[in-house]
Amino acid sequence: MVATNEPGAPARAKRRRADTRQRLLDAAFDAFAEDGLGRTTVEQICDRAGFTRGAFYSNFSSLEELFLAMWEQRSAQLLEGVRAFLDPDIDIGDPRQAVEYLLSAVPVDDKWFRITYEFTAHALRNPDLRRMMVAREDAIRNALMPVAVTLLERTGRRVPDPGAMGRALIAVHDGTATQCLLEPDDAAVRAHRTDLFLHVVEAYSEPIEP
């Protein structure tokens, strides 16, 4: 008879489940990027990860749920990187430097860009999924903006409407990311991306009165 109260067994089972889930997420990331969301099947992801369909469905109910889990994970990693810039020892002298700091924490990822744009198109055909994406994007923006506001305050500027600035920054990010990926070797394109972010930051903020 196998003992069910072996010391450490629950912890090991939890680690195994977490490892299985992560391997499925990693396999799905590569499959979505290479083959596209519409052409990727549960079986393909399981083959890449080395698991059966049972392992998939014990962790996710659908490919959409898997994608949302992937998005949540990558968003958490993004926020962790951005929050590192709140280190009080980091000296930020002007708004351009604040923008450059933030952009260095938000890399233009070719694979992730392909995945998210295809999934956005999919969500536009699915009202429930679209509402979920809007809610998650709002949560990400609400978490990012306090960091941006704090960085700008260090440069002597305040943000009257963080929500409006957040939407403008996301619009610029999405548009310029496309240009950067289409012309990856053009330094002028990336410089223009920084300039556009700076214009938005200056347009949606104002000097702090002495």
Rank of each mutant, 00 (worst) to 15 (best):
R141Q: 15
D109Y: 00
T178K: 07
R167V: 13
A171Y: 04
H199P: 00
A55G: 10
F119K: 07
R136G: 02
L129M: 14
A28N: 03
V99E: 06
N59S: 14
F67R: 04
A188L: 12
A105F: 05
R17H: 07
D94I: 03
D185V: 06
P88C: 07
D19N: 10
A18V: 02
F56S: 01
L103Q: 09
G166S: 08
Q179F: 14
E209L: 11
E153D: 14
V201N: 04
F67L: 14
E202S: 04
F51D: 01
V159H: 02
R114N: 14
L25F: 04
F60L: 05
V200C: 06
E80K: 11
L152F: 10
L68E: 12
A18G: 04
A143V: 04
S75P: 01
L103K: 10
P88S: 10
A13E: 08
P160H: 09
G93T: 13
G175A: 08
A9I: 03
A76V: 08
A188C: 01
P184S: 12
H173D: 10
D35M: 04
D19K: 06
Q97F: 02
Y101F: 11
K14Y: 02
N5I: 01
R53F: 09
R125W: 08
A55V: 03
V200W: 01
R15K: 13
V82W: 01
E209I: 10
E43F: 10
A3H: 03
P95I: 04
A164E: 13
R17V: 07
F119V: 10
A11S: 08
D26E: 15
P107I: 05
T176G: 00
R130I: 07
G163I: 08
D195Q: 11
A143S: 15
R17Y: 00
I208Y: 02
M145Y: 09
F60I: 09
D185P: 00
E137M: 12
L78R: 07
S104V: 03
G163T: 14
A188V: 12
D87Q: 04
T176E: 09
D91F: 12
P184Q: 10
A3Q: 05
A18Y: 01
R157S: 02
V2M: 11
P95D: 09
A13D: 04
A187Q: 11
E118N: 01
E137D: 11
R190C: 06
V159E: 08
Q179H: 12
A33Y: 11
H173N: 09
V134E: 15
A9R: 11
R16S: 12
E80A: 15
L129E: 14
L78Y: 02
E209R: 15
R193A: 15
F119Y: 15
L103T: 04
V106Q: 11
R136Y: 06
A143K: 00
A121I: 09
S205D: 06
R23F: 06
G93K: 10
I90H: 12
R158Q: 13
G93I: 06
